[in-house]
């Protein structure tokens, strides 16, 4: 609690959610809400799962409301890890916030953004 200041309105600053799912031909990671140090264990699990699977991974960041360097590091390291196994990280947007953050750390070329209108199923069909 701040010592001399309180906000007048309640803030929704609950930790976000990290979901990882094995799909038919790819791994799906869904990030939702505030992706920060509070979900670092969940991010580590999702990253390990995705790397071990060694398949194309789609990360849905459309509903990320906040991301700190722990979240950015997760995206960057997962993209680099997948690339080292010959797989690819695809980002499902739009998320201007996430796009700006990975650009500012110099990682804009590590992951490819899916077209906004493309659904994961469309991409799977198009690349199979």
């Amino acid at each position: 609690m701040s010592r001399d200041h309180q906000t007048s309105e309640p803030e929704n600053d609950a930790p976000g959610d990290v979901v990882v799912l094995a799909q038919d031909d790819h791994t799906l990671v869904i990030l939702h809400g505030e992706i920060d140090v509070r979900v670092s264990d969940e991010l580590e699990y999702a990253g390990r799962f995705s790397i071990d699977a060694g398949r194309r991974t789609v990360m849905d960041v459309r509903h990320v409301t906040m991301m700190d360097s722990v979240g950015v590091s997760f995206v960057v390291r997962l993209a680099a890890g997948l690339r080292s196994t010959g797989a690819e990280l695809l980002l499902q947007g739009p998320s201007r916030r996430v796009a700006e953050l990975i650009t500012l750390v110099g990682a804009g070329d590590l992951a490819r953004w899916l077209p906004e209108e493309a659904q994961v199923a469309d991409v799977s069909a198009g690349q199979s």
């Binding site: 360097s69 950015v72 500012l104 110099g106």
Partner: peptide
């Protein structure tokens, strides 16, 4: 940029 740590300060410096 894939090393553990450092991205936070990198972001702070960029902003």
């Amino acid at each position: 940029i894939t090393a553990v740590g450092g991205l936070g300060l990198r972001l702070v410096m960029s902003m």
